[in-house]
């Protein structure tokens, strides 16, 4: 565990809290893409199936392979799953009337199908768990596309929404640094699938980061895109 990895995870965690706080404080999920949030629930569900493995080890009192890192990962995975499901739940129940569904027009099959095909072709091992893990990595990389499309459609984002997007985009950028660090310091550490997907994921936020920093520098509350 290095400083980049822990910062990335905490930033990721912060993104959930910012979004939930925004939705609770303003009683609105305006400007937030339900489709992107739904994709994140799918991403975490497919990626964290190994939680059952950890659970299995715990209920059989097989603690030999449970390390501090396992406990940390397990704790965070449960938090990420709970937070993302809670967000989707809020957007479909009490905040449904404020949801930007009419402008959230991205066709999810356009990312789901290619990610599924890529996961079946490019994976480290042809097993169900490994393919689902790989699918989740590919899907996470592009899951922000409905949100970016909604942002372009709307032309601006309120302060909390833009902080949320900065946190969720920034976390993967920090993972890139973490991977470079691990590659340099750990023997045999290599994971091309995650690296390429992580790079694509960060690159998709490129324009957003630019406008976010323009907003921060100018002291504006709302992020505005050029018309």
């Amino acid at each position: 565990m290095n400083i980049f990895r822990i910062s990335a995870d905490l930033l990721h965690l912060a993104s959930f809290f910012i979004l939930i706080f925004k939705m609770k404080a303003t009683k609105s999920c305006k400007g937030i893409s339900f489709k992107t949030q739904l994709m994140y629930t799918l991403v975490f569900t497919c990626r964290y199936l190994d939680l059952f493995h950890v659970l299995g080890m715990m209920i059989t009192f097989n603690f030999a392979h449970i390390t501090g890192l396992t406990l940390y990962n397990t704790f965070m995975k449960i938090l990420f799953l709970a937070a993302s499901y809670y967000i989707v739940y809020l957007m479909r129940t009490e905040l449904k009337s404020t949801s930007d569904d009419a402008r959230d027009t991205f066709v999810l099959w356009h990312i789901l199908a290619p990610c599924a095909v890529l996961a079946l072709i490019f994976n480290a091992q042809f097993t169900i768990l490994e393919i689902l893990w790989t699918f989740s990595i590919y899907l996470e990389a592009v899951a922000v596309m409905p949100q970016l499309m909604l942002l372009i459609e709307t032309g601006e984002a309120d302060s909390l929404s833009s902080h949320y997007m900065f946190a969720v985009g920034g976390y993967r950028a920090l993972y890139l640094v973490n991977w470079v660090y691990r590659y340099a310091t750990e023997p045999y550490y290599s994971n091309w699938i995650a690296w390429i997907a992580g790079f694509v994921q960060t690159a998709l936020f490129g324009d957003f980061f630019y406008y976010y920093f323009v907003k921060i520098m100018s002291g504006d509350a709302a992020l505005k895109l050029p018309t």
């Binding site: 990420f80 550490y189 994971n191 699938i193 995650a194």
Partner: peptide, 10 residues
């Protein structure tokens, strides 16, 4: 193992 790389991350 190949499958373990990256699986210790979130």
């Amino acid at each position: 193992a190949a499958t373990e790389a990256g699986h210790d991350e979130l």
